[in-house]
Design a protein around this nucleic acid. Structure first.
Lengths: 201, 201
DNA sequence: CGGCGTTTTGAGAGAGCTCAACATCGGTGG
DNA sequence: CCACCGATGTTGAGCTCTCTCAAAACGCCG
């Protein structure tokens, strides 16, 4: 849900805009929280680094999406936010947003509903990450992310990015997609995947 | 955070109490949502069933914890809730809770903060589920769930339950715990695990 | 004591990861 | 316009680790 639809103008007016180069960090785990953040352009990923030094992608946000909602109630960030492409973000300071919620009940409730939806989508992601099989994981991703036509899945970034988002090695993803295409289950296009025969997935 | 601390008495008065036998379902995916649910006694797990017929545990709630928060804003449940032990739950009807939030701003904000925390803990769980290695996954679980003393991890149910919660086969969990104990990293007691040498974990 | 579910241990197979080599593509600069 | 370069995309081979199937020891409760 777009920020303009529910965040009162007073809070929106306090926004700070910031541009990020690809690979640049918006914030790091442990930094003090600034506030709610909306992605205006590009893509920003939330990630943590495991003890083996590998990055674990928790979420990828595109234009219109917000990140760091939970940080309104925390003093420190609990993960990294890094631009996956050149990006522009708007930061709504914590105090301004909380003040707006105190005055505008509808805004507060809309925000709560947003969080509730996020909880559901995170559960879905847990379900995905619990799947060991690359094929099933890809299948699950495709079925969750089909567009309105029910057959097309738009790909935001590179396949390598997707592999990271899926928690697979990029080789495994390549192989799985190739196998699915060979089997006639999908067709790959530039920046998209079209489901051909759900039966074969 | 205990429900009594933030939910207004008016909403609490509308609660319906229900007892569940071990294995009994509180609700199933697709059922119409009733409202917020608090676990009074026993343990209730949230789970989905994957297409291979295996159950994927999304969360296990114990006494004092609430489940189905997100369902306040949805019309259908998006996962199953099943009693892992004999249990008692209190259901606060959706309308009563939403009405309370409309009147009591502090309650609404406390609820929002609860959701925000849940988002964070779900992210942590995604991180965990992304780990392939059984050893690392157990290590992650232990480090996230150590008690106040920093060395003891209380186990709610059986090791088999824990294996399901971790998304591991129970054999893998047994072997991993045995190996960690042999290495002197942990010590197992009844219903608990004590960390001995974090170095060896 | 008998029965059932949990806890253990063993062996084998499958699947993804890692390392490695190579092809492709887009952008840059001569 | 073309050569170069880095990153993405692709494929191959071997290894490791977990899963699965099996079987047995253990513990608890009637």
């Amino acid at each position: 849900m777009p920020v303009e639809d529910w965040l009162p103008a007073a809070a929106r007016a306090a926004a700070i805009e910031r541009t990020l180069k690809s690979g640049e960090a918006l914030f790091r785990l442990g930094d003090k929280t600034a506030g709610l953040c909306e992605v205006v352009a590009g893509r920003v990923r939330l990630a943590r680094v495991d003890r083996a030094g590998r990055e674990i992608v928790l979420h990828v946000a595109g234009p219109g999406e917000t990140i760091a909602e939970a940080s309104l109630f925390a003093s420190r960030y609990h993960c990294d936010a890094i631009a996956s492409t050149d990006a522009v973000v708007r930061i709504y300071p914590k105090t301004a947003v909380l003040a707006a919620f105190a005055q505008d009940r509808a805004a507060a409730q809309a925000f709560t509903a947003t969080l509730a939806r996020q909880v559901m989508s995170l559960r879905t992601r847990i379900e995905q990450r619990n799947i060991r099989s690359a094929r099933e994981r890809v299948r699950h991703y495709l079925s969750v992310n089909v567009g309105a036509d029910g057959r097309t899945v738009a790909l935001a970034g590179t396949l390598k990015d997707l592999a990271a988002e899926l928690g697979l090695s990029h080789e495994a993803l390549y192989r799985t997609l190739a196998a699915l295409e060979r089997a006639g289950a999908i067709k790959r296009g530039k920046g998209k995947i079209v489901l051909m025969r759900a039966r074969k997935l």
